[in-house]
Design a protein around this nucleic acid. Structure first.
Length: 725
DNA sequence: ACACCTTTGTCGCGG
DNA sequence: ACAAAGGTGT
């Protein structure tokens, strides 16, 4: 391919980084400075000018979304499929290694990956089996402890309790949990990395094979690497010709899961002959947005120092809206999106970003109300739904009979007369003879060590699983899935569930068959052995959790957390819920380091916006089903007021949060509002009151009024006959 | 053993 | 507010 094609679209700084001759290159790339572009063009450069082959290239990212994006852009630039190259997430690549070397890694051939819910169940089970009290040893806490140690690369043997009895128990739980996973043939996310690291450590010839192969390693979002990932990279890079890391310390937002920003500083010490490049020209946002973001991040003390600039004009001011409550906030956002669309904009150019997943619901309801299609990223994902996990558990057990977690999940789903008592006997038997529950069940049936009724039921279950295994041998994946969800009785079981819920569950199970059909095609292309397709699909379900559901190409409003927005850009961005306690989150305020991380998160959110940034907060919000009042986030006051205009709806009850000296105050008439918030009204029966909230429009609108005598009530405008005062 | 009801924990983010 | 875990009555 022509070298000019690779280099011409780049600016000077980008070109220097792409063509760098040093072995090891560290690129400090600010938000919107063309980070992905540099990575992709570097790959093209290595192929064109450095005699690299696709086979020798490994590109690592953190999220599936980023990996997909990179693959797409490589293919776009090179005009060929990225085959031969390994492009994927740390976890995905580690998984691939372990599948190839399951034996050397000490795993069973059909080992399965647990998601965090499965892991929590496993930890709970271990704690119970150890005879510990769940109240005193909360499974959540142990799960957190175990994952944190794994992220640090530490096994229970290498941990010291220093005489602390609490710590000693934690380490024991960790050790017992490891034995459980080993027995059941399952591994958790952190274990993928830890295990592939120790595989290389203990099997030098395997390590050498990969060191010889991957001479060109590229890492995206380097600031998010944790201890074990960094160690993993260092080990692999032993013989590499080029290690190319791209990162931004101002966008380090994964400290809570063990990421070490220090790895950026460490890089040039550990990797000899490192050249560092900085990308500071921003091609994404307007001047105002950029200046505001720069000013915000300047409140952080621990920075490597970097200031974004742009050639573009100032653009619009940042809009700030003080909502009365979360309903009002959602209404405001939806109105602005409708406005955008009315003026010819696309829905997919609008993104609503929030701190925590739970905030999406109110916005979703409002979008539905106005008939705006939307798509939520994250949250409860497809493969995490109850009915899907049930179906997967059947497939897992058929695939690997040692999988106790799956056994327990479905042995009595749908109910078939195997109650808690019987399950306990099976569990006991299994534990006493150190075998999986499946074998224990067999043993109990053979020796008739159960009451006749339970015995029959169990025998029926075991037989059913065996039959299914035989029936699905050699047929296509989607046929296997279809067979299993029918034969297991899951379809009939969920058909019985009343209302909307049951119907969606059946739809989801049908969708699972579809997912299988798609996977069949992928597997064919990737030349996966027919007999391994099921195993691969089940891992895929854990690792990707169904991010790709829904119609990606449809024109949808985009809803996601700030964390999942990293790396993306949108013309119009709504940053909502900027309240003390929510953002920054209350648990982060205590620890100074964590607070800076929250600020970086805010910085990430702001720099997603290309043309328009709208920031909002609610003075009152429902949390845990309770009304809570909050102050505006400190981040709002950290944005210099000259970049901000405040939006006020006519007669809004919400009050401006600080001195009010914004560049501009825009009074906007809310044309659809049936009534103004804060309006005083009179009702025949209830007397005088103040409008707190409303939903809907025109005659069918419902209004919430707080009456002085009668308290708060919801009334329908059409009938209430309110008099305005 | 199971359907139904009450209690409890969660909503802090991703693979 | 909601879902899952735990408890109760049949």
């Amino acid at each position: 391919m022509d070298v000019s094609q690779i280099l011409d679209p780049l600016n000077d700084a980008q070109r220097q980084a792409v063509c760098a001759e040093a072995n090891n290159v560290l690129v400090l790339a600010g938000a919107g400075s063309g980070k992905t572009r540099v990575l992709v063009h570097r790959i093209a450069w290595m192929l064109a000018a450095e005699s690299a082959t696709p086979y020798g290239i490994l590109a690592v990212t953190f999220t599936n979304k980023a990996a997909g994006e990179m693959r797409g852009r490589i293919e776009q630039l090179l005009g060929i499929p990225s085959s031969g190259m390994w492009v994927g997430t740390f976890h995905g690549i580690a998984h691939r290694l372990l599948r190839s070397h399951w034996k050397e890694a000490g795993l069973s051939q059909h080992f399965q990956v647990m998601d965090s819910e499965d892991q929590l169940r496993a930890v709970r089970r271990v704690i119970r089996e150890m005879g510990l009290d769940e109240g005193q040893w909360p499974p959540k806490e142990s799960q957190w402890y175990i994952n944190a140690r794994k992220d640090e690369g530490k096994r229970p043997e290498s941990l010291d309790h220093h005489g602390d009895p609490h710590l000693r128990h934690m380490i024991e739980i960790y050790a017992e949990y490891e034995r459980y996973c080993q027995r059941a043939g399952v591994i958790d996310f952190a274990e993928l990395l830890l295990r592939s690291h120790s595989l290389w450590l203990e099997q030098p010839e395997i390590l050498q094979h990969y060191q010889n192969r991957f001479r060109y390693i590229l890492v995206d979002e380097f600031q998010d690497t944790n201890t074990i990932q960094y160690a993993w990279l260092r080990m692999l890079a032993g013989k590499s010709l080029s290690m190319f890391a791209v990162g931004d310390d101002d966008q380090s937002i994964y400290g809570w899961r063990g990421a070490k920003v220090e790895n950026i500083h460490q890089f040039s010490k550990d990797f000899k002959n490192t050249e560092t490049y900085r990308l500071e020209q921003n091609y994404r946002s307007t001047g105002n947005i950029l200046n505001a973001a720069n000013a915000l991040i300047d409140h952080n003390a621990e920075r490597m120092g970097k200031e974004l600039w742009t050639d573009d004009g100032e653009g619009e001011l940042i809009q700030l809206y003080a909502a009365f409550n979360e309903q009002d906030e959602a209404q405001f956002i939806v109105d602005k999106i409708r406005d955008w669309v009315d003026k010819g904009g696309l829905r997919s150019e609008c993104a609503v970003l929030y701190r925590s997943n739970a905030q999406s619901r109110v916005i979703e309801e409002r979008l539905i109300q106005h008939g705006l299609p939307y798509r939520v990223y994250g949250g409860l994902r497809f493969f995490e739904r109850q009915e899907i996990k049930d179906a997967l558990a059947y497939l897992r057990l058929i695939n690997n009979r040692d999988d106790d977690a799956s056994f327990e999940r479905i042995v009595n789903v749908p109910t078939r007369g195997i109650g808690g008592r019987t399950v306990e006997v099976i569990r006991e038997t299994a534990r006493n003879s150190g075998v999986p529950m499946w074998q224990a069940a067999y043993h109990l049936i053979e020796h008739k060590q159960l009451a006749a009724r339970a015995l029959n039921a169990l025998q029926f279950f075991v037989q059913r699983i065996e039959d299914m295994k035989k029936a699905i041998d050699g047929i296509q994946l989607h046929e296997q899935i279809e067979h299993v969800i029918h034969e297991s009785g899951l379809i009939d079981h969920y058909k019985k569930e009343k209302g909307e819920k049951g119907r969606t569950r059946i739809e989801n199970l049908d969708e699972l068959i579809n997912a299988g059909r798609n996977y069949d095609e992928d597997a064919f292309e990737e030349e996966i052995e027919q007999s391994d397709v099921l195993t691969a699909f089940l891992s895929h379900a854990s690792l990707e959790a169904g991010e790709r559901q829904g119609d990606e190409w449809d024109d949808c409003v985009q809803l996601m957390t700030l964390h999942s927005a990293k790396g993306l850009e949108f013309k119009q961005v709504f940053l909502c819920g900027l309240e003390e306690g929510l953002f920054p989150h209350r648990l982060s305020v205590e620890e100074p380091g964590r607070l800076e991380e929250e600020r970086r998160l805010c910085y990430v959110g702001m720099t997603r916006a290309m043309e328009r940034l709208v920031v909002s907060y609610a003075e009152k919000r429902r949390l845990y089903g309770e009304e809570k009042f909050a102050r505006p986030s400190r981040f709002i006051s950290e944005i210099p007021s000259q970049y901000v205009e405040e939006i006020r709806l006519g007669g809004s009850v919400a009050t401006p949060k600080y001195d009010g000296s914004y560049a501009r105050v825009a009074e906007v008439e809310d044309k659809d509002a049936p009534v103004k918030l804060g309006q005083r009204v009179f009702h025949q029966k209830f007397g005088e009151g103040i409008v707190l909230n409303y939903e809907g429009q025109g005659r069918h609108a419902r209004v919430q009024v707080n009456f002085e005598m009668a308290g708060s009530k919801w009334l329908v405008m059409e009938y209430a006959n309110l008099q305005f005062q």
